[in-house]
Amino acid sequence: MARVCTLSEAIEENVRDGDMLAMEGFTHLIPYAAGHEIIRQGRKELFLIRMTPDLIYDQLIGVGAARGMKFSWGGNPGVGSLHRFRDAVENQWPRPLYIEEHSHAAMANAYEAGAANLPFAMLRGYIGADLAKVNPNIKSITCPFTGEVLAAVPSIRPDVSVIHAQRADSKGNVLIEGIAGVQKEAVLAAKRSIVTVEEIVDELNPSSPNAVVLPAWTITSVVHIPGGAFPSYAHGYYPRSNAFYIAWDKIARDRDSFTAWIKENVLAGKPEDFARHVNTRAVNAV
């Protein structure tokens, strides 16, 4: 049953050195506040899993918290490179990063297989694509009924998954609205899970009986962090800061300016700092 607690407690209790860590949110609802807390607590040797590493993993890679990463698209969306990711792969700075690279379809299928308690996922994928030549975890399987050869990848079973959502009720049931990505699958595939939320309310009151709801008993920790997805966004609360994504290109391009940014905004920061992004940027607040 989910325990409602502080961010510091949730990370302390659930994220351990060496863990396979999935922090999901497909452009929307990326759990940045939790990422910053992991950096502040100095977690190391993490194996990161995320379809689109985005700025959140650029930060974890840049501080040297990761030994490896499984991913499917490692850019700054619409802007260009993730410079810390590139520096790690091209120059091994601040340390070498082992990469396991997939396509989106394979990652999405692998999360779903993890949630379904299956050992692998299959898809009609990677046909003629070179990734299958460089990633030993892309194999094939023959359909026993038709003989068709399909791609197979191992399911994703994180030690811990971290997501951000709009609301939880006081018992810790969680509601996700808008672009729902692979968050439900990431939580259900993981041994432990943390959900940070914009609001804790008395009743969830989902807008439809088919809304994406994660029952409290599927979640380990729920944390109230308004603004916790900034510079990503929370549908119905605040928009994506495209301006910050554009600004990150310059911040992260240079090792010193990146390190200074982390020192000032993460190491000297605290979870409550994220709330200012809601206050100044609130739109259509629910």
Partner: peptide, 25 residues
């Protein structure tokens, strides 16, 4: 035009929005 593939504008103006595994499968 969206800057990212998942800007809120896309969801706000969509007929419906499905999960990423459903989209690919």
């Amino acid at each position: 035009l969206p800057l990212s593939i998942g800007d809120g504008e896309l969801c706000d103006t969509a007929l419906c929005t499905v999960s990423v595994p459903e989209m690919f499968r």
